[in-house]
């Protein structure tokens, strides 16, 4: 019962994040919405595992979290530098 309620709440949150991703006027709204959806997917995965009585897939949820981080960093880096291969401001550019 408790897990079902949690699943419902997570799905509602996910729907709200998707609304923000579709309507979001700025880039940051969309990046934040994408990140939130990924986080909600992680939590949904964990809660569904307990809901079905088989919490063996928690490690898969951890992998989702890592991928979510990579995706968000790629989006933000693209927005900041306009290029994924650009070294950050602190590092000197590599010599060929």
């Amino acid at each position: 019962m408790m897990f079902a309620a949690a699943t419902l709440a997570i799905i509602v949150t996910m729907a709200l994040a998707i609304v923000r991703a579709i309507r979001g006027p700025t880039v940051f709204d969309r990046a934040q919405a994408g990140n939130t959806t990924g986080t909600m997917a992680v939590m949904l995965l964990a809660v569904i595992g307990f809901l079905n009585g088989r919490p063996e897939f928690l490690d898969l949820a951890i992998v989702y979290g890592l991928l979510n981080l990579v995706g968000t960093i790629a989006v933000l880096k693209f927005f900041r530098y306009g290029d994924l291969g650009d070294p950050g401001e602190g590092e000197p550019p590599r010599q060929p």
């Binding site: 994040a17 991703a21 994408g34 959806t37 989702y64």
Partner: peptide, 9 residues
């Protein structure tokens, strides 16, 4: 961004 969201769903 929406494509990423779709993949997670």
């Amino acid at each position: 961004v929406l494509g990423g969201i779709y993949s997670f769903l």
